[in-house]
Write a protein that binds this DNA or RNA. Structure first.
Length: 226
DNA sequence: CCAGACGTTGTT
DNA sequence: GTCTGG
DNA sequence: CCAGACGTTGTT
DNA sequence: GTCTGG
């Protein structure tokens, strides 16, 4: 599962990793406790093939929704059932994106939060889907869901699901609007290699969405001096 | 035909 | 217990 | 994901 | 919008 994550790599590096045009990039403030319903940074691709950074509401609102849904039930999408879900099926074919992250949190049965991140400290890309919804007042909200898959060996002791993390070589494939069928794309939504990740328990401070800052992701046994 | 749902997770 | 808000 | 509310009336 | 249930 993926219900909380971080994003603190500065935009200059993000532009390099995701091959974005540095012009037209907005500022990304470091965040250590991103929760559903908040705005998240994502990379999409325009019809003419250019990559674009966007801020999306985390919690996908389908274009056909009559009302703005209360709460956020669609912030994750199971990789195994995407094609059977009216909420996600169209997006899988047409509106895929990369949700930019540096790591994610999972809570074990004992309620201890654990932070998972790239072993080299590089940003990650979660496979995502987005949609565009228009309210009765004519206000447009672009939103997204993060795809989940089976947990890898590192995550499994804590939780049986994790976000579908893509490898850099797969970014283009996932974002391309044509030349890919849903079955082929599904192959990308597998557990990320455990040896490329690290993990450590963190304080329960991350539980409360009002808390942010490095302390949320800091190792429990090496607390930051604050 | 119309009405109503449309989602994931974890826990006992 | 269940829903909403972040 | 977790935290916090879960209600109506009338008054300033 | 599209599908299921009645």
């Amino acid at each position: 599962m993926c219900g909380r994550f971080t994003q603190y790599t500065p935009k200059k590096q993000i532009a390099e990793v995701f091959n974005l045009d540095p012009g037209g990039l907005f500022d990304l403030s470091p965040r250590y406790n991103i929760a559903p319903t908040q705005q998240v940074a994502a990379v999409g691709q325009t019809k003419d093939g250019r990559r674009k950074l966007a801020m999306l509401r985390w919690g996908l609102i389908p274009s056909w929704a009559r009302e703005m849904p209360g709460g956020a039930k669609t912030f994750n999408a199971r990789a195994e059932t995407l094609q059977q879900r009216p909420t996600f099926r169209d997006a899988l074919g047409l509106r895929r994106c990369l949700v930019i992250a540096d790591g994610f949190y999972e809570w074990g049965k004992d309620k201890t939060p654990v932070y998972f991140y790239d072993s080299m400290g590089k940003p990650m890309a979660f496979a995502g889907l987005w949609d565009s919804w228009k309210s009765g007042e004519g206000k447009t909200i672009n939103s997204c869901a993060i795809i989940t898959t089976e947990a890898n060996g590192l995550v499994k002791p804590v939780h049986d699901r994790m976000p579908a993390v893509l490898y850099p070589a797969e970014y283009g494939w996932w974002l391309d609007r044509d030349g890919t069928d849903a079955g082929e794309l599904g192959k990308l939504l597998r557990p990320y290699q455990a040896s490329l990740m690290k993990a450590h328990p963190v304080s329960k401070r991350v539980n409360d969405v009002r808390n942010d800052g490095e302390v949320c992701a800091a190792p429990l046994n090496l607390p930051l001096i604050t």
